[in-house]
Design a protein around this nucleic acid. Structure first.
Length: 423
RNA sequence: GUGAGCGUAGCUCAGUUGGUUAGAGCACCAGGUUGUGGCCCUGGGGGUCGUGGGUUCAAAUCCCAUCGCUCACCCCA
């Protein structure tokens, strides 16, 4: 038997409803904030991610699905969406049409990691990017937007963490400071952290190893060495969050694994999804556009994991999807009337009435069971004596009542079904 | 890449110290008055016990290998 590739999942009809529910909520919410959808190709030139995300990141270093096409071009299945969106923004000069571009997306991403709870190799993210403004109000809006969506889904167990990484200049100054502090303690650090010392020293804060944490806890904090603008922007974000009633905590160790972040970064965690707690992560990336060849343009955004969110919703039973139903199930009492039933179905469907019937030549009892299983609101019996007298039987499945309707008057039938909805 | 746990019906699982034709619940199909659902009752179909090898008179059960799944580490959504 051929099975789905490791780390990929089928979304079966039995659980598609909650995806639709979420997608509808997303489109409505993004519209509320005036974001427009963008769709980019599933793969890109590898260089886009190498340059955009950063050569030293885990994503680029070991997680990408990279392959060569027949012309030997190196291609990569997108592991995240910010770089492609920025590429598209530059390529089509979206910024020339208006100074601020607000975009959202819902799409599959690919990363070759070992799967576990809340982690897949093909997974879906939704997110937003606002390109063209350095206003911290926009950073606050991102958090508000993401947090609002999670709240709308009924999620409770949420933590919003924020931090500021400052401008590149202050970050460089700070890195030197940190390097100086850690210099003589370097050989006490774990192997991973010693490697980070040279590649990306800030990520040492991410280490979960206790001995590392003991060393790093007395280190100077980036947040205490911010430049004036980063500092005041951070204050504005915090004020704005407080005003909109979003609970948050400042986490000076929140250093995200993508190199392009500047100033504000944030993460929304859930306690309901296993070890992978981050439902959503984002922040400001004022340098990325020029890194990818565009004009220097400030930008901010976030990405959220659909599977993780749905997992949290499932575990918290945060929302309930109503059962699916159809309006009418047509039952043929005489097996000779198959084509009559088919014709009636066409008529009903053309009038926007959802219906179905038995294609397996089963007994009336079997057809009734089927109607019941499909949550049909009505059953229409066709055949027998009524049919000979030009009538058919319409049965209301919630109260069991039946009424006769002339076979020739389909309008009366449609009227009945439409004006007599069962709540 | 590293570590741990688990593979028996479509699903959830039972299966004794190795011992007849491998079971249950749910789901599916048929029937329970000639043309009517849910509840209930009766019957039925469906399994290479993940795969390959080994031990044995005898393997779902013991041993080895292999594949797959799950969870965790790393990191991230």
């Amino acid at each position: 038997m051929i099975k789905a590739i490791t780390g990929t999942k089928d979304i079966l009809p039995s659980d598609i409803a909650k995806w639709h529910y979420l997608e509808k909520l997303l489109r409505e919410t993004f519209h509320l904030y005036n974001y427009k959808e963008i769709r980019t190709p599933i793969f890109e030139e590898t260089a886009l991610f190498a340059r955009g995300i950063g050569e030293e990141t885990d994503i680029v270093g070991k997680e990408m699905y990279t392959f060569k096409d027949r012309s030997e071009t190196s291609l990569t299945l997108k592991p995240e969406m910010t770089a492609p969106v920025v590429r598209s923004y530059i390529e089509h000069s979206l910024g020339a049409q208006q100074p601020l571009t607000k975009l959202y997306y819902i799409s599959s991403m690919f990363r070759q990691e070992r799967p576990q709870a809340g982690r897949l190799r093909q997974f879906n993210q939704f997110g937003a990017e606002a390109i063209g403004s350095k206003s911290p109000l926009l950073d606050a809006e991102m958090i508000q937007l993401a947090y609002g969506i999670l709240k709308s889904l009924g999620l409770k167990n949420l933590t919003v963490k924020i931090n500021s990484l400052g401008t590149p200049e202050t970050r460089e100054t700070y890195k030197k400071l940190l390097k100086k502090f850690l210099e003589d303690k370097k050989n006490k650090l774990s192997e991973d952290s010693r490697r980070r010392f040279d590649t990306n020293i800030l990520r040492i804060f991410d280490s979960k190893i206790e001995s590392d944490q003991n060393i790093i806890k007395d280190a100077p904090k980036l947040i205490e060495h911010l430049d004036e603008e980063s500092k005041s922007d951070f204050e504005i974000v915090k004020n704005q969050l407080s005003k909109t009633g979003i609970p948050f905590q400042v986490d000076p160790t929140l250093v995200r694994g993508l190199d392009y972040y500047t100033k504000l970064t944030f993460e929304i965690d859930s306690g309901s999804v296993g070890a992978q707690t981050a439902l959503c992560g984002g922040g400001r990336y004022d340098l990325l556009i020029e890194t990818l060849g565009g004009k220097p343009t400030p930008a901010t955004g976030f990405a959220a994991g659909v599977e993780r969110i749905l997992l949290a919703c499932e575990n918290e039973k945060s929302f309930i999807i109503p059962e699916q139903s159809i309006d009418v199930y047509l039952i043929r009492v005489d097996s000779a009337l198959e084509t009559v039933v088919a014709d009636f179905s066409s008529d009903l469907r053309s009038q926007n009435i959802s219906c179905d019937y038995d294609y397996l030549n089963r007994s009336v009892k079997a057809q009734m069971r089927e109607a019941n299983k499909m949550n049909a609101k009505y059953v229409l019996f066709i055949g027998g004596d009524e049919y000979k007298n030009g009538m058919m039987n319409l049965k209301n499945m919630s109260n069991g009542s039946e009424e006769k309707i002339p076979y020739s008057n389909i309008n009366q039938l449609i009227e009945r079904i439409k004006t007599n909805p069962i709540s």
